[in-house]
Nucleic acid binder design. Sequence first.
RNA 1: GGAGAAAUGGCAGAGUGGUCGAAUGCGGCGGUCUUGAAAACCGUUGAUCGUUUACGCGGUCCGGGGGUUCGAAUCCCUCUUUCUCCGCCA
Length: 423
Amino acid sequence: MLQVQYIKDHREEVINLLAIKNFKASDLIQQVIDLDIKRRNSQKKLDDLLAESNRSAKEIGMLYKTGKVEEANKLKEVTIEYKHEAKVLSDRLGEVSDQLNALLLEIPNVPHPSVPGGNTEQDNVLVFEEGSFPELDEKALPHWDLIKRYDIINFELGNKVTGAGFPFYKGKGARLQRGLINFFLDRALEAGYIEYQTPLLVNRDSGYGTGQLPDKDGQMYKINEEDYYLIPTAEVPITNIYRNSILKAADFPIKNVAYSNCFRREAGSWGKDVRGLNRLHQFDKVEIVQIQHPEKSYETLEEMKDHVASLLRELKLPFRIMRLCGGDLSFTSALTYDFEVFSGAQKKWLEVSSVSNFESFQANRLKFRFKDTDGKTKLTHTLNGSALALPRIVAALLENNQTEEGIRMPEVLIPYTGFEVIS
RNA sequence: GGAGAAAUGGCAGAGUGGUCGAAUGCGGCGGUCUUGAAAACCGUUGAUCGUUUACGCGGUCCGGGGGUUCGAAUCCCUCUUUCUCCGCCA
């Protein structure tokens, strides 16, 4: 959520930058500014009335003390009137505030000036590419065939026990999952992150805090009995740790990492590009989150980008980094790098990580502030990234490393998997 | 699940209807003293909204929400959480 003051001070800039996201903001922003004036007027009226009412109440106390009961009773009648008026004003203020808030929730984050224009992923800009495509022969199999051949991931069982998109991992498939999770966590710890295990269910306030609600309501699984949501990413619980809190400038940077299951309904996107591990309803992910001083958040974004790149390099997967264009950028993000690995048999780039700077957009919703060295309380900047999401990494590892003798694990994973070949 | 107790500022802990945004202690910050540090002493120390060029002034906040009252940290209702005892349980 953007701050009203910021919108007022940077009106034209906000409108122009939001246009990069293909968001027409001028009408909304006019409404926000009008409502803000209305809100402040209502607030002033109410405050003045309450001040008067408070003065009367004190005076009545004094009158009682000095035995002037009649005068006190007279004053009471006046004060009761104040109370009725205050109720009306307070209701009006509440309405105006709610309206204003609802409008603010509709305005997406302002993109960083370096975000390219464009509508779809076709318009994303390649910023880095590394590694060579695997040399596979004609008979190379896509991962959905490989997993059957070696009996390591079973979709049919998942269909039977739960439904589509909830596979079982079995034998070396399960051990590969466990190995990757530990590998990613260890690398994050070496980079100075603190490990967390989080709840997999969060409440409504947390959903609003990180921006999944209200706009992505239908994408999360919901527990109706408790009004809880299954997390789509560990970003939600990890970032909501800091909801309604105030840090010191010396606390930066905060670096957290969490492995979690992630649950996504993927409503609307089922049907294409979803074969095998390409898109699941439940998957595993190691997520890194950083909390940073506003002046340093873009340095931090680069650091996180480098961390993710180093993981892919170690796994010897060919990858590229894309700067998302305005149309592909999420509601909450100011700048996002997507990481894609090349999956040799599908001959496709698969998105395996998304590293974003949300600037103060989440922090404003979260009421997550810090006391700066100048003594002022300001909003923090929040960033996060996948490091990494497992299923597509597994898909690429299986496809790119297949040989006549089986699937060879990359050197770096062998201590983690405990085996060299899936055969 | 049942019975009881509790929730106050960064922490501990007073406060049961009228200058209480809240005593006191610890911690934090500034200063005096000291070669330096500690101790001691003095001062200061919450968030948020509105208003003001500014000094300041005003509103709101004592777990969340609602109510009683001219006036609520204090009384009532409700929800949540924590603790103790019992039950159940990986």
